[in-house]
Write a protein that binds this DNA or RNA. Structure first.
Lengths: 169, 169
DNA sequence: TATTGTTATACTCTATAACTATA
DNA sequence: TATAGTTATAGAGTATAACAATA
């Protein structure tokens, strides 16, 4: 941008991606997400499976579509996700006596154990991510990001990328 | 996670995605990126085109592959990007007298005007993003994120998502 | 023989909409 | 007629590797 702009003096925030809040968030969000993806890989699941497992664990017996609505995942995609978790023996579909169309989702004992492992991995992932910050800085950062998240009306535990299309870089 | 974990008391950072640094970054990075994508859409370009235009503007006359190396974009993908920008009349490929294999990249006058517009859009995008923060908070946040970016060895102006695969959510 | 740019192929992921079985 | 779940199809985006021209 140095010699591109006619003569306007750059201000904080528009003097290039180095100090752009949006670009920093985009870069760091991608890196954080990619590493989390790699962290989960040895367990044979992806971040989206983790989010799904969490919601099922939180309220077992729900139908696929009600879970999908909470996570903002369209019905046709829930199927594949549940399929994958069922193949790995982490989740099971049971019949719903009161509505034979619906499939009630439950964690298997193995699913519970894996979810415990995932939480431990999440802790180390989380610690590694901010290792260059002091505890106070970390608190500050999280507080500020939560303010932004509130501004953007983000729902805790729901990733906006699950709703729609792939990542626009 | 409430009733899933055996009995361990949740600590800050692992008591669910609400206060997880990684998840917040991932959510906000996605939202920021998606809105930036939508902001550029009326101009007929995407964020990746903007990054490419910037690098070309910064040093005109470079070959496609040298630009690609700076942005960490593989050769086979540069072609399509340059194609698209050339179709829109923002960029042009010129012959390189000293190496007839290479194609030297230059902005067109129109490309320069569009790039100026994009910078203006970037400013308003940037302002909107942190509108719930005070100027001091904004400075703090950017400083902390830059610290993280340094920790992750992120290169200014280079988006890690351009290098490889789509967004893992 | 190596390199620049290009293209062809296969692969993955997704949305859309059709379909079934129940309600 | 509407709804839960499923599946088939087509489309977009990508990596990979082959290719032509030039070095």
């Amino acid at each position: 941008m140095e010699d591109v702009k006619s003569g306007a003096k750059p201000q904080r925030g528009d003097d290039g991606p180095q100090s752009s809040l949006g670009f920093l968030l985009s870069q760091l969000g991608f890196v954080s997400s990619r590493r989390w993806h790699q962290t989960l890989a040895p367990l044979g699941i992806e971040p989206r499976h983790f989010l799904l497992l969490r919601f099922v664990a939180r309220s077992e017996g729900q139908s696929q579509q009600s879970i999908g609505q909470m996570l903002h995942i369209p019905p046709s995609r829930i199927v594949a996700l549940v399929d994958q978790l069922e193949e790995r023996g982490l989740l099971e579909r049971r019949a719903n006596p009161s509505d034979r169309r619906a499939r009630a989702l439950y964690l298997t004992p193995r699913g519970r154990r894996v979810l415990d492992k995932v939480w431990k991995l999440a802790m180390s992932h989380e610690q590694r991510l901010g290792s260059s910050l002091t505890p106070e800085e970390r608190e500050q950062l999280i507080t500020l990001l939560q303010k932004l998240a509130a501004e953007e009306k983000l729902v805790p535990g729901v990733h906006p990328g699950l709703t729609s299309a792939p990542w626009p870089s």
